[in-house]
Amino acid sequence: MLAYVARRLVQSLLILLGVSLITFALLYVLPADPVRQIAGRSATPQTVENIRHQLGLDQPFIVQYGRYLLGLVQGDFGRSYLQRTEVGELIAARLPASLELMVGAIVCELILGLTMGLVAALKRGTATDQALMVGSFVGVSAPQFVVGLLLLYVFAVRLSWFPIGGYGSFSHLVLPSLTLGILGAGWYSRMMRSSMVDVLRQDFIRTARAKGLRRSAVIFGHALPNAVLPVIAMIGIDIGMFMSGIVVVESVFGWPGIGQLAWQAIQRVDIPIIMGVTLVSACAIVLGNLLADLVTPFIDPRIKLQ
């Protein structure tokens, strides 16, 4: 186990290094000039060049990237061009809100997706099965900003069950979590249905039924633990999906997380913040996948880590 974890951590560091290199290179060739954003439209060419020199943006790419990596090794994400604040502090202040939203979204998608998939598998070939699969397809296909706006209009504006936006209470968390969770629920329901149908055909399920076990015991005690394994592997991947969709959802609901911070930074070409949020998101994806791989053998001892 320790050898596996050590090997995966080394691989994770290489992945993060590649992400940082690609992101830094894309931002380097970006047509937009962050110095112009800082200096303003009325700044003289001399002022622009002075700011560029102060930020080190007049250096070659390899020098800029090497200096950034040296800062990362020391735990320094850099300093925001516009906010004049350490990027690490900005991310640390916003990260708890994003993690709270991510946990809420995972809970929503698991409850909705697993329930829909289980019911569809048990009602295979019926109208219920078809209706649930159509609903999952709609959930997967619908853009998140459209889902978010619809939920806001129905449950916040028309029914006044939840606040329109903001942060701080459970009621603020419900709609953005549901918006993110609907997409994942669609994937989970389809995967859960397929996995459950396959497990129900296995010999050990027929043996359990032949022993006279109750239907609920067969389903929840034997079939479900085996059918849920592919879903666990997807949770780590979902963290990446959340990190990409969280920018839109946080903007729609006014949620003060790193997604909103990243969106503001993109609009202002604040490169240190963009780099910091990208690396934190990539780190979350890598750790999520590693955690999913480590948990799976405890659920199914037949799976061995190699």
Rank of each mutant, 00 (worst) to 15 (best):
F298E: 02
A131H: 03
Q144P: 00
D300G: 07
Y167D: 12
A210Y: 05
G168T: 11
F162W: 14
L72N: 04
I22Y: 02
D203W: 06
V5Q: 06
F242L: 15
M192F: 09
F298A: 13
F61H: 05
G40V: 08
V35K: 02
F242M: 15
L26P: 07
A156E: 13
A93R: 07
S171W: 13
R67E: 14
A25E: 03
V295F: 07
R214D: 13
Q130N: 14
T115P: 09
F253W: 09
A127S: 13
L70Y: 05
R214I: 00
S281H: 01
L21E: 01
M243Y: 03
G245K: 02
I303P: 12
G18Q: 03
L99E: 06
F162H: 12
P143G: 06
R214K: 08
H222M: 05
T47E: 08
L17F: 14
S216N: 03
A210G: 11
V199N: 10
L101N: 04
I205D: 08
G212R: 03
G181P: 10
P31R: 05
L305H: 09
N226I: 05
S177E: 14
R215A: 11
Y153L: 15
V29T: 13
V140L: 15
I15L: 13
V157K: 05
S177G: 11
A223K: 01
W255T: 09
V48F: 01
G221I: 04
L72W: 07
M102L: 12
G166P: 09
M234V: 11
V277T: 14
S141Q: 06
Y188I: 14
L14W: 05
L183N: 04
S171F: 11
A127K: 13
A43Q: 03
L305N: 09
R193T: 11
T126Y: 09
S194H: 11
T126K: 10
L180N: 09
M192R: 00
T207Y: 11
C283I: 04
G148V: 13
A208R: 06
S251W: 10
L69G: 03
P96R: 00
I235D: 10
R67K: 10
L291D: 04
I303T: 10
I237T: 12
R206E: 12
A32V: 10
T85E: 13
L305G: 06
N50M: 02
F24R: 06
L110Y: 07
Q306S: 13
A3T: 07
L99T: 04
A227D: 10
G236T: 03
L27K: 06
K211G: 04
I303Q: 12
R206L: 12
L229V: 15
G184I: 00
I51A: 01
G56Y: 02
V286L: 04
L9S: 09
A39I: 03
S216W: 03
L287S: 06
L13N: 01
I303H: 07
G18I: 02
W263A: 15
G135R: 00
V146K: 00
M275I: 05
G259W: 11
F298Q: 09
Q46G: 00
S80T: 02
Q260G: 12
A265N: 12
S251L: 10
V157S: 13
Q264A: 15
V29F: 12
